[in-house]
């Protein structure tokens, strides 16, 4: 018995190594879920506040681009608004209240961002105190950015679209053909659109937008443009490459969208056992 203890004592360094390595591997594996605890990522109070300070300093350098983007967004919104202005002599009938007001929008500032890993995350300076919830969709004026993974009181961690596990339900704007957009970890400017059958004809230059099926994003938020279509080598689907419309290298402000009916939709999918991605 004593010899066993002596032996264990002699390899104590190795045992400690194995134990710590096991903790690290456990952390890697448990962090892979799409929604999880925010204690051990950049959304926690300590790292969140440090990153916030850093972002406050660096903000001044991106003011020009941010202003320009905001002006563009405003111009777009004004153009949109013009469509809804009714002439004085028309009669307005509200068709269905279910279709209106099911989405709520919030704004936030990105304080941490990465694009060079295969699983990238962003951190934003809004948290549960400002009404941010897990699973909310995130986009900016250019297009889809990602989805909220974890929330603390003042910060939230967002799974970037540049994350190999995130699927975004999407469709071709002109032909309504739908599929899922997923990043393949190769180039931060490009992604793949999956699950589009071979018989569908897709042109280079077709615009891809969110489909609105998965209730995370409203319909019609830009994702990218098709730059290459090939028949898939191993599957029955087309191999479609998109150029993402969002420039992930310079994201500074984002919008968050919450679907008030997401829970109801999720319950429906669950009770009929359809997976909602």
């Amino acid at each position: 018995m004593q010899r066993i203890f002596l032996f264990l004592y002699r390899i104590r360094a190795f045992l400690l190594f194995v134990a710590l390595e096991a903790i690290a591997i456990f952390l890697i594996v448990s962090n892979n879920s799409q929604q999880g605890s925010a204690a051990l990522n950049s959304a926690n109070q300590l790292s969140g506040s440090i990153l916030n300070t850093q972002s406050n300093v660096l903000d001044y350098f991106s003011l020009a681009t941010v202003n320009k983007a905001l002006v563009d967004k405003n111009a777009n919104l004004l153009a949109e608004l013009e469509k809804f202005k009714r002439p004085a002599d028309s009669v307005y009938i509200e068709l269905d209240s279910v279709l209106s007001a099911s989405f709520q929008f919030k704004g936030a500032k990105v304080i941490n961002n990465s694009i060079h890993h295969s699983q990238n995350y962003l951190t934003i300076n809004r948290g549960s105190a400002h009404g941010i919830k897990e699973g909310m969709g995130v986009f900016n004026e250019e297009g889809v950015v990602g989805r909220v993974k974890a929330v603390t009181k003042n910060f939230a961690s967002v799974i970037s679209l540049l994350h190999t596990d995130l699927l975004v339900s999407s469709k071709v704007k002109s032909s309504e053909v739908f599929g899922s957009t997923k990043w393949d970890a190769a180039d931060p400017k490009r992604a793949k659109m999956l699950y589009v059958p071979r018989h569908v004809s897709i042109e280079i230059g077709d615009e891809i937008v969110t489909s609105g099926y998965n209730a995370v994003f409203p319909e019609g938020i830009s994702i990218g443009k098709v730059i290459n279509v090939q028949p898939g080598k191993e599957t029955n689907y087309l191999d479609i490459t998109l150029e993402l419309s969002t420039d992930f290298t310079r994201i500074s402000y984002v919008y968050l969208v919450e679907n008030n009916q997401e829970q109801e939709l999720d319950e429906l999918y669950e009770s009929s056992s359809i997976s909602n991605e």
């Binding site: 903790i23 690290a24 591997i25 456990f26 952390l27 890697i28 448990s30 962090n31 051990l40 990522n41 950049s42 926690n44 300590l46 790292s47 440090i50 990153l51 941490n112 990465s114 890993h117 699983q119 990238n120 995350y121 951190t123 961690s157």
Partner: peptide
């Protein structure tokens, strides 16, 4: 890891 969001 905390800052890189690459837990572990």
């Amino acid at each position: 890891d905390l800052f890189y969001d690459t837990m572990g």
